[in-house]
């Protein structure tokens, strides 16, 4: 039963992500991870017997744990990636704010000079 749910969830999630990209609400760049994620869920749900065999071979006797482990590692890497992006954007915003404020002052000064003429 849970495997069918997994398949359904994977498909719905994939459609959701593709739709976001289509509506320009998510960059292609950022969608790739989520597409891989939903394909992963699909594959594991479809080939769950193979997945169980692999986990047993790896010494994981309760296969869902292997799934959780993968998920946590991937999410962790992705969150670091996102915080790097935020830092970069933060720097850009600060730079823009500063340049804009300096330009604003310059324009106002020039306008004042023009008014005096």
């Amino acid at each position: 039963m849970i495997y069918y749910l997994g398949i359904i969830f994977g498909i719905v999630f994939l459609i959701f992500i593709l739709n976001l990209v289509k509506k320009n609400k998510l960059d292609e760049k950022y969608s790739i991870v989520w597409i891989i994620f939903s394909l992963g869920i699909l594959l594991i749900s479809i080939f769950y017997e193979l997945f169980m065999k692999i986990s047993l071979k790896l010494g994981v006797y309760y296969p869902p744990i292997l799934l959780l482990l993968f998920a946590i590692i991937i999410e962790g890497i992705y969150i670091v990636h996102i915080t790097i992006t935020i830092t970069k954007q933060n720097k850009m915003i600060i730079k823009l704010t500063q340049e804009l404020a300096i330009l604003k002052e310059k324009v106002e000064e020039m306008e004042e000079k023009n008014d005096k003429r």
């Binding site: 500063q98 804009l100 404020a101 002052e105």
Partner: peptide, 18 residues
């Protein structure tokens, strides 16, 4: 004084750097 008006609150560092 000349006044530079930052449209966002950048915090002390961003302001001094401006």
């Amino acid at each position: 004084a000349t006044v530079i008006d930052l449209p966002n609150n950048l915090g002390i560092g961003g302001a001094v750097q401006t």
